[in-house]
């Protein structure tokens, strides 16, 4: 494949000098350079495209009952989106259950818009042309809590129960690799390959992690939500498939969100 041409040799020599300089760099700079990469990405977040589509979906009349989600109560009254994500998961009396955003959206889509669960969850996680309404709606609602402080309640007994269960599940080991959530997220200052692993049991890390999801994942070219985040963690934990809005989902999300209380919400973000 390589074919030299005499006339270009001088230029080649000049470039060799340049590349030797580059080789002298040391690995201690790696993390600094990764940080530069992340900063370079922050300026144009494709999550914007999901937020815009989600807002349209929120306002559109959809489903067999042909109504919009503008009467959906995310916990702060029907139709109130501003700041709602920062207080989820929470207990909803109408369902007698603690719900995270995505289980609540599913609830509104089935009870108010009249969709079946299967219809509402036709594409739980987007893949290229197969776009997920759930991810777009979540991006929109989450974006409406930017700058709001996380304030997840433990006032109701079921909220306390969900937290305690989430904490217990966080340490539950299983599968061929013996992994629990805590295997990767129970200690401070660790990383997997070059990715920092937040210690989700510690306030500062838990805050930083939770307030930056949903996020546009550049590795996938998709916007991902917390439900996806949990699913993909369990996949890599070698567990079976986590069901959308299951008790395990809600409990873990309650544990994670509550541990982030007090921090300013700042998502959808952009991540590797």
């Amino acid at each position: 494949m390589m074919q030299w041409r005499g006339g270009a040799l001088m230029l080649g020599a000049a470039l060799v000098a340049v590349s030797v300089g580059a080789q002298a760099q040391s690995g201690g700079d790696t993390i600094k350079k990764i940080e530069e990469y992340r900063q370079a990405l922050a300026d144009g977040n494709p999550a914007d495209l999901w937020e815009a589509r989600g807002e349209d979906l929120w306002k559109q009349k959809r489903g067999p009952k042909n109504v919009s989600l503008e009467r959906c109560d995310l916990g702060k009254g029907p139709g109130v989106v501003k700041g709602a994500y920062a207080e989820l998961p929470r207990y909803f009396a109408d369902a007698d259950r603690v719900m995270d955003l995505e289980s609540r959206l599913l609830h509104c889509m089935t009870t108010q818009q009249g969709m079946t669960r299967a219809e509402a969850l036709k594409v739980p996680f987007g893949d290229g042309e197969k776009r997920s309404d759930m991810e777009a709606l979540s991006a929109y609602v989450a974006g409406e809590s930017r700058g709001v402080k996380m304030n997840v309640s433990q006032a109701h007994a079921k909220e306390r129960q969900a937290y305690a269960l989430g904490q217990k599940l966080f340490y539950y080991r299983g599968g061929p690799h013996d992994f629990a959530c805590a295997t990767c997220h129970g200690e401070a200052n660790k990383r997997i390959r070059l990715q920092d692993l937040p210690n989700l049991t510690e306030t500062k890390d838990a805050q930083k992690a939770y307030t930056t999801w949903p996020a546009y994942r550049v590795s996938q070219g998709e916007l991902r939500t917390m439900q996806w985040r949990l699913n993909d963690c369990f996949r890599q934990q070698r567990f079976p498939f986590l069901e959308f809005g299951s008790d395990t989902s809600v409990a873990l999300l309650t544990f994670l969100a509550r541990n982030a209380n007090g921090a300013e919400f700042n998502a959808p973000a952009i991540k590797r």
Binding site: G44, N45, P46, D48, L49, G128
Partner: peptide, 10 residues
């Protein structure tokens, strides 16, 4: 000017 486009770029 900053532009984001929705496209697969397959």
């Amino acid at each position: 000017v900053r532009v984001l486009m929705s496209h697969e770029m397959e």
